[in-house]
Amino acid sequence: MTNAFLYALAGSGLFVLGLHALVMHAHVLRKILAINVMGSGVFLILVALARRSGETTTDPVPHAMVITGIVVAVSATALALALMLKLAEKSGQAVLPDKHGD
């Protein structure tokens, strides 16, 4: 079992953990954090898989992808937080309303 595989396994673990939290928690901030944990898991996998077995150099392309991914994740998180604040301001609590609340 290589190091890379361990990292990838950890990444998958993070992804699943995050998914669990996203579904189970009602509070929007927890959901946003869960998404971020899942994102970190994916990035970890990307970095880990950059080294293929039998090659000595690491592939730079996944690293570039991770950097791009982080930029995307940051902007998504910013949007999510802004939305959450608005929602909390209007409804007094940061949970998702019932589906057809009107």
Binding site: L22, A76, A80, L83, M84, K86, S91, L96, P97
Partner: peptide, 18 residues
């Protein structure tokens, strides 16, 4: 910025990010 729109948008955002 209406409350139903914010709720809908939040749910949408979480789904789309996932």
């Amino acid at each position: 910025g209406r409350i139903d729109a914010l709720g809908g948008a939040m749910r949408y955002l979480l789904a789309t990010l996932l």
